[in-house]
Design a protein around this nucleic acid. Sequence first.
DNA 1: GCCTTACGTCAACAGGGTTGACCCAATATG
DNA 2: CATATTGGGTCAACCCTGTTGACGTAAGGC
Lengths: 229, 229
Amino acid sequence: MTTRVPQERRRRRPTRSGVLLSEDLIVETALRLIGEHGPEALSVRRLGAALGCDPTALYRYFHGTDDLVLAIADRIIGDAMAGFTPGDDWVASLREMALRVRAGYLAHPRAAAMAAHRVTRRRNEIRAVETGIGLLLTAGFPPADAARLYLAFIDTVLSHAATEAAFHALTPQQREADHRSWRDVYQDLDPTAYPSLTAVRRELPAMADSSFEPAVDLLLEALAARARR
Amino acid sequence: MTTRVPQERRRRRPTRSGVLLSEDLIVETALRLIGEHGPEALSVRRLGAALGCDPTALYRYFHGTDDLVLAIADRIIGDAMAGFTPGDDWVASLREMALRVRAGYLAHPRAAAMAAHRVTRRRNEIRAVETGIGLLLTAGFPPADAARLYLAFIDTVLSHAATEAAFHALTPQQREADHRSWRDVYQDLDPTAYPSLTAVRRELPAMADSSFEPAVDLLLEALAARARR
DNA sequence: GCCTTACGTCAACAGGGTTGACCCAATATG
DNA sequence: CATATTGGGTCAACCCTGTTGACGTAAGGC
C-alpha cells in the first residue's frame, strides 16, 4: 500500500458498524485478541472483524503487520514502566526496572512472546533506555561502558522475560508436562553415566522454578563489582 | 491428516523425480534451504519443491510443521554439542558451552527462533545439563547451589541465543531498520528531555552489536567471585 | 455550499498449511 | 513365480494469510 501513515489524524470517519478507529483502540483490541485466543489469533482479518471494520482499514494506521507488532511491544513497555522514577540506589533501581519489565511481559505473555525480540524505536522504549543508561552514568561508568553494560543488562532482562513469557503462554497441559519432566525424566538416570545429575538429584525439581531473579542478581553483582573498581 | 507417522519404514518408493525420501534427508534439505535462500524459504511447499516431491508427501514423515521444526531443533542441538568435552578450567568450559550453543542457534536462526522457547528434554539436552552441573560441582559449589546457578547460567545463555537467533531470522528489511534506528532515531533527540542518551550519543551505534559475550562474561565473573567465597 | 482529501470499503492476487481420495509399486506371502 | 496387501507419493481442493490498488463517501476548511 502506498498510503502513508500520518502522525496526527483530525478527520476520522466511523466504520460501517459505527466504531471510531484509533491507534490505541487497535493495539488494545490486538492485545485482547492475543490474550484470549493466542498469538495465532492475531491476523489482519481477525483484528478487523474484532474491531468491526474492514481488515484493510488497519493499513491506514500501520504500515503492515510488523509495524503493528512493534506498536504492541511499545505499549507493553509503556504500561510496565508507567509511574517508575529511579531512586538514589542505582542497583536497586535497575533491579526494579528488571522486575517491572518482567511483570509487564507476564501481564501479556502471549503478546510478549511474539514481540519481545524487537526494537520498537518508539517513545516508551526510548524513555526506558534513557532511564537505564542514566542509572549507569550515575554509578560512575564512563559513557562508552554505560552504553555497552546497559545493553548487556537489558538484553538479559528482556531475553529472560521473553523466555518466561513464552513458558506462560503454553497451555496448562504443556506447562504441567514440562514440570513433570524435571521430576520424571531426570530422576531415573543411570548413576554411572550421569554422576553429577545423580549428585544433585534432590535439587532438580527446583529446576522448574524461574531463574529470572537469580540471573538478574548475578548480573547486578558483577556490575556493582566493576563500578567499585 | 489421519495417517500415522511410523517409527521405521521398510517400504519406500521413489518420488516422481526419483528421490528416495527419508526423515534425515528432509531435515537436511530444510536446513540447506534456510541456509541458502534465507529463513522465509522454509515452507512445506518450497521444501517439497526442493526435495523433488509433492509437498504433501512430507506429511508421511512429520505430523505437521511443528513436528518438522522439532526434528530440526533436535539436530541443531546435537550438532552444536558434538565432540565437546569439558576441560580442567570450569569457567572456560562453561564459556565454551555458551559459545557452542550460540553458534548452533546462529547456524540455523529461523529454526532456532521457532523452537528456542520450547523445552525438548531429549538426550542431548540431558547430557548438556550433566556436563554443566558437573562443572559447577568441580568449582566447589554445594549441590543445591550448583543446580540453581547452572539454571541461571544456562537460561541466560539460551535466552540470549534465542534473542540473537530471532534477530537473525528477521527479514533483511527488518534487520536493517533495527540497525538504522540506533543511528537515526536515537540521534535526533531533545537534549533536555533525554540528557543521558545525549551524553552517550556517540556510543549508541554500538548498541546494534551483540551483547552475548559481555553478558556471559559478566555472569561468569559473578560465578567465579561466588566460588572464591 | 463547495472542494479537497482522509480513510473506510471492496475485489483480487499470491502464497501459506492441511485434508481426503486416489492409485501405483514395493514388499510379504503362498 | 503369482498374488494380495499396504505404504506412501500424488492430486485437487479448502480455507487461511498479508497486501495491493481502485473506488467512493463523508468530514472539515474555506
